[in-house]
Amino acid sequence: NNDALSPAIRRLLAEHNLDASAIKGTGVGGRLTREDVEKWLAKA
């Protein structure tokens, strides 16, 4: 759900042209964290 994304995470996803639904969030309530996105980028 994009409503649950912080502005910083939205920007990070946009910079790398990523789809938030492709990344499993580990934050509160399954929210994406910066670490989630960075780990996903490291694997890609």
Results as ranks from 00 to 15, higher is better:
V37M: 04
G25P: 06
D19A: 06
H16T: 01
R31F: 07
A44D: 08
A22N: 11
L32M: 06
D3W: 01
I23H: 02
E35Y: 11
E38Q: 11
N1G: 13
D3R: 11
T33D: 01
I23Y: 02
R34H: 08
K24V: 14
G27K: 01
S21N: 12
A22G: 08
A44F: 15
L12M: 08
I23P: 01
W40V: 13
L41M: 07
A20M: 08
W40L: 11
R31E: 08
N1Q: 13
G27W: 04
A14Q: 11
L12H: 06
P7T: 09
T33A: 01
K39Q: 12
R34V: 15
G27N: 02
A44V: 14
G30S: 04
E35V: 07
K24E: 11
G29H: 08
W40I: 12
A8Q: 10
R31I: 12
N1F: 04
W40G: 03
K43W: 15
V37I: 15
T26E: 03
R11M: 08
V28R: 10
L12T: 03
W40T: 07
A22R: 10
A44G: 07
S6Y: 05
P7K: 10
A42D: 09
A42I: 10
L32G: 00
L41T: 02
L13R: 00
K39G: 09
N17R: 08
D3H: 11
L41V: 07
S21I: 06
N2R: 11
D19N: 09
L18H: 03
L18K: 03
V28K: 11
G25L: 03
L18E: 03
A42V: 08
E35Q: 12
G30K: 03
V28P: 15
E38T: 09
A20N: 04
E35F: 10
T26P: 02
H16F: 07
L13A: 04
D3T: 10
K24F: 10
N2M: 13
S21R: 11
D3G: 10
K24Q: 13
N17Y: 06
A8K: 08
H16L: 08
L18F: 09
A20Q: 06
K43G: 10
R31A: 14
N2E: 14
K24I: 14
G27Q: 02
E15Q: 15
N1H: 12
K43Y: 14
S21F: 10
K24W: 07
A44C: 07
L32Q: 01
N2G: 13
K39L: 12
D36A: 01
K39W: 13
A4N: 12
G25V: 03
A4S: 12
I9K: 00
A8R: 13
P7M: 13
P7H: 12
A20W: 10
A8N: 07
D19Y: 05
A14K: 13
V28Y: 09
G30R: 04
R10M: 08
K24D: 06
N17W: 06
R31Q: 12
A22T: 11
L13W: 02
A44K: 09
I9S: 01
N1L: 12
K24T: 12
E38D: 08
T26F: 04
R11F: 09
G25R: 04
V28M: 11
E35W: 13
A4W: 15
L5Y: 05
D36R: 00
A14T: 07
A8T: 10
E35P: 05
R11E: 09
G29S: 07
H16Y: 10
E35I: 07
S6V: 05
L32D: 00
K43M: 14
R34M: 15
L18S: 04
L13Q: 00
L41H: 07
L5K: 02
A4P: 13
L18R: 02
L41Y: 07
K24Y: 07
D36W: 02
A8V: 10
I23R: 02
R11A: 11
A4F: 15
D19I: 09
P7F: 05
D36T: 01
L41S: 01
E38H: 08
E35D: 10
N17F: 08
I23S: 01
I9L: 14
T26S: 11
R34Q: 13
H16R: 03
A14M: 10
E38N: 07
W40N: 03
N1D: 14
S21Y: 07
D36F: 01
P7L: 14
G25Q: 02
L18I: 15
A20K: 05
L18N: 02
V37P: 00
I9M: 09
E15W: 15
D3L: 08
E35S: 09
N17E: 06
G25E: 01
S21G: 10
S21A: 12
N2L: 14
R10G: 03
L32S: 00
N1R: 08
P7N: 10
W40K: 04
D36Q: 02
T26N: 05
R34T: 09
A14S: 09
K43P: 04
A42T: 10
R10F: 05
E38K: 10
S6I: 05
D19E: 10
E38S: 06
E15I: 15
A22D: 13
D36N: 01
G25K: 03
D19F: 05
R10K: 10
D36S: 00
I23W: 04
K24N: 09
D19M: 08
G30Y: 01
G30A: 05
D19H: 08
S21T: 11
I23D: 00
A42N: 09
S21D: 11
H16N: 05
S21V: 07
R11T: 07
V28T: 11
A8I: 09
K39M: 13
K39I: 08
L13S: 00
S21Q: 09
A20F: 09
K43F: 15
H16D: 00
R11H: 11
T33K: 04
K43Q: 14
K39E: 13
V28L: 12
L41A: 04
A14D: 08
V28W: 09
K43L: 14
K39H: 10
S6H: 09
E15K: 15
G30I: 02
A8M: 12
K43V: 10
T33S: 05
A14P: 00
R10A: 08
S21K: 11
G29N: 13
D3N: 11
